[in-house]
Each structure stands twice: as structure tokens, then as C-alpha cells.
Write a protein that binds this DNA or RNA. Structure first.
Lengths: 200, 200
DNA sequence: TTGACATTACCGTCCGGACGGTACAGTACA
DNA sequence: TGTACTGTACCGTCCGGACGGTAATGTCAA
């Protein structure tokens, strides 16, 4: 398998899989998940329908990959940030904040693919549910103030939701300000622990 | 038009329109917005397809009604709560909190219909976007601490998102606790203004 | 080093089924 | 007599997926 994979590649040099995933997300965003067709994805990704079905044997598999990609990318970033904080107290919450901060700073596209997957089959929510449950658990156990950790989780979830639906209510500065204010609840201004940006 | 409308009616006594809307939301939740078909809606609502098309001449009109219903119901509750607070400082934020609190207390079904509408056509987001933009504006202008108001907005948005996707991460008690902690940021424990429950 | 075969990565076509919407005749209630 | 449907039949379109190719690349044995 010729797999050097997609991180930081230009649109041309993406692997076929990633080109397809990206195309699917774009189309879902443009015309709505309901009208996401394999033909359209194939066209956008620059291959034939046969080629698409070769890479993802069913539509469900494509959608599954869309969800999988999103969750695993986030988890990878999170683990890195946690490690950078030596897994100390509040490290999970702070790592979570850092990851979202980085996501907002670089222009990550909104995960329209997830919406498409869920729209096709609510069952795709299950892995996300499981992941979030476990994440929230870890945030609370690791935090000095569990309730506050929950509030952070909710606020970030709010920001995510706004982005998912492309609400465009807050400028980038305002979003960063909100995130930083969150961070200050855990790092009271002076006593900063480790503000090393591990951003990719 | 025979319009006595639906508030607090039993499932049997709902108007045809509301029976259809409810059926559509249910089906969307169960099988996913993609597989929401007019035939299925008609069956669930207990009328023929002809009857359905008589009430909503196109699928788009049905979805539009779904969005419209959600936004206007929320706005109505919000205005009432604001009035109960005499439109004083922070009244918009507090009213917003109160409405969500009431929504969580009574077992409001999650607005799966909205998801269905958006999945069919992202254009349905526009009215929601407009409404939220204006709401956030009002919250900030009316609040003593605008940034804090924004945080409240985001947290509630997070709770909404969790509910929309039926994440089930937080128990009802935990959600109420989160909401009440938010409220305390504006009403510092002792100096309470007006805690009259205007719940329907 | 060459011929035989395997694998990968596609292309193009076709089909059955589902869906949105139309049309229209009938009906029950008010 | 009209409003609010029911029921059925039907049309055109679109979509997922199966299938049969095929060109390029690699592998290995004689």
C-alpha cells in the first residue's frame, strides 16, 4: 500500500481517499447532506463512480470514514497536548482548550461530513457519543473543579456547534477571546503552567 | 383556517399541521433526515399522501414550517420571560437561561426537525442564523458584562447541541446544575431579582 | 530477462427501486 | 355547497450499487 498520507498536503497531492472525503464534505455543505450523491462526489474528487466504489465499496463506508477521520484527528491532537502538559492536574481540560484554539486559528474547515453521516444514519452518532462520554469523564477526573470542567466542555461544544452550522455570529477574535477567558478560569493569569504551543 | 393550535394538546387532538410536523420530526430522528420521505410522514401522521400534499404542497414547505415552528416557539417564551423581568439589566441573558431551564425540566423533544430541514437544504439555516445574531446582539447590549453574556450564550448553545444530537452525556440534574451555575454568574447568590417561574 | 500471472486503481454502463410530485375521482362533515 | 380530506394510479428523475472491463505496476520463476 502506497501510504504516505495526507497531513499538510496540497489539494493536488492528497491521497485518493482524502480527496474523496474532502469532496464529500464540500458537497454536503453546499447542497445539504440529503443531496449528497456518489456521482457528485466522484465528479468532484476527479474520478469515476467505479473508482469511487472501488475505494469505498458502499456509501455507508464513506460516511463511516468521514466520522472516523474527524474523531481520530481530534484525539491525536488532544493526546499530544496532554503529553505536553505532563498529564498534570487540569491537563485534559487545558489540552482540550488548546486543540480548539489551534483549530480556530488555522482555518480548519467545518466538519460538514459528520452532519452528512448523521443525516444518513443516526447510528453514526454512537462512536461520537462514546468518545465524548469518555472525554468528559477524563476531563472531570483530571480537573480540580469538575463542575467548571463541565462548563468548559459545554462552552467549547457551543463554539463547535456554531462552527458546524456556520453560524458566523462571532468574529475570530471574539472566539479566541472566549477561549482565552475559559483558559484563565483554570490558569489564574499569573501562575501559568506550560503555554507551549504544540500546534501542528 | 381552523386554528386553535397545539400548545399542550394530547397527541390525538393536535391539528393536522402539527400532527404532520411531529411525525416528520420523529421519522427524521429515527431513520435520519436523508430517509425522511413524504410517504412515511403521511403514514405516521395518519393521513394519506394526498392529504399531506394538501396541507403542505411541497416538501420544502413542510421543512420550512418545521424551522419556523421552532424559532417562533422559542422567541415567544423568551419575550415572556423578558417581560417578567421588566426588561431590566441582564434580563435578556437571564430570560434565555430561564427558557432553556424550562425546556430541560419539561421533557421537550429534541428538535430533530430542524436537522432534517438543514440536511435537505442548508439555506434553512439562514433564518436561524439571523435570529441568533440578533439574539446575541440583544444579550450583549443588555448585559452588564457582555463577554460573560457571550459565554452564557455559548454554554447554552453547547447544551442545545448535546440535546440536538441526543448525546446523553449529562444527567438532567447535571444539566440543571450547569444552568444554575450560569445564572449565579449574573445573580450573585443573595441579591436575586425575579425568580418567578413563567413556565408554560 | 522474459513471459505468466497477480494486484491495484480505476472506467463506463446498466438496472431496480425509491422518491417527489401530479391528477383526479370519491367522500364525509358542517 | 364547500372544505378538508382519502385513495389510487401514475410519471420522470435520481441514486446506490453491481458488474464487466482494462491499463499500469509489481512479482516471481524458469
Amino acid at each position: 500500500m502506497p501510504y504516505i498520507e495526507s497531513v499538510g498536503m496540497a489539494s493536488d497531492t492528497l491521497s485518493t481517499k482524502d480527496k474523496i472525503l474532502q469532496a464529500a464534505a464540500e458537497i454536503a455543505k453546499e447542497v445539504g447532506p440529503v443531496h449528497l450523491s456518489l456521482d457528485a462526489v466522484a465528479r468532484r474528487a476527479g474520478l469515476s463512480k467505479g473508482g469511487l466504489l472501488y475505494t469505498f465499496p458502499t456509501k455507508a463506508k464513506l460516511l463511516e470514514a468521514l466520522v472516523e477521520q474527524h474523531v481520530s484527528e481530534f484525539d491525536e491532537s488532544l493526546r499530544k497536548e496532554e503529553a505536553a502538559r505532563n498529564h498534570g492536574p487540569n491537563s485534559v481540560v487545558l489540552a482540550c482548550i488548546a486543540v480548539y484554539r489551534a483549530e480556530f486559528l488555522c482555518n480548519e474547515p467545518e466538519p460538514s461530513g459528520i452532519l452528512a453521516a448523521i443525516a444518513n444514519d443516526p447510528g453514526f452518532l454512537e462512536p461520537i457519543r462514546r468518545y465524548n462520554k469518555q472525554l468528559l469523564q477524563r476531563m472531570r477526573e483530571n480537573a480540580e473543579d469538575p463542575t467548571l470542567a463541565m462548563m468548559v466542555f459545554l462552552t467549547i461544544e457551543g463554539l463547535r456547534s456554531l462552527k458546524l452550522f456556520e453560524m458566523g455570529l462571532l468574529s475570530k477574535d471574539e472566539q479566541i477571546a472566549a477561549i482565552d477567558r475559559l483558559k484563565n478560569l483554570f490558569e489564574p493569569a499569573d501562575a501559568q503552567t506550560a503555554d507551549v504551543p504544540v500546534t501542528a
